[in-house]
């Protein structure tokens, strides 16, 4: 039940476009004591069906800039392989600490940034 609730809350935040993963992962690690790698894989897997649903709607509404996508995705895949391999090499405890530093930076950025990205 706690798990469904955590999913519900982070899904709500994610659905509002604020970024669900940065709530879901620490919530799982802190409240359910899930191993850090498992928390992260849950977020990855959770993203897949929700992204597909969102994409169908966005493609219909022509909100996607297709020209830009391919030159970002190809190096992105190389990055994803590097990033996952690094994550797998770390122990759960070390990965948790590194994630916490990342989360702290993101939290401070989110706290002090202007409401819209930029005026443009």
């Amino acid at each position: 039940m706690v798990l469904i609730l955590i999913g519900l809350v982070s899904g709500t935040i994610g659905g509002m476009g604020i970024g669900g993963g940065t709530v879901l992962i620490p919530a799982l690690t802190l409240f359910v004591n899930t191993e850090q790698h498992i928390s992260q894989s849950i977020n990855l897997i959770y993203f897949i069906p929700t992204a597909i649903i969102a994409l169908i709607i966005h493609i219909k509404n022509k909100r996607i800039d297709f020209k830009i996508v391919l030159p970002i995705i190809i190096p992105g895949i190389i990055g994803a392989i590097i990033g996952s391999c690094i994550a797998i090499k770390f122990s759960s405890n070390v990965l948790k600490k590194i994630f916490a530093v990342f989360l702290l930076i993101m939290g401070i950025y989110e706290m002090f940034r202007k409401s819209k990205l930029a005026k443009n």
Binding site: S41, L44, P75, G76, G79, G83, S84, A87, I98
Partner: peptide, 12 residues
């Protein structure tokens, strides 16, 4: 692309 991929893979 590379930075996004690394972050996404490393932190999920």
């Amino acid at each position: 692309g590379i930075i996004t991929g690394i972050v996404n893979g490393l932190f999920g």
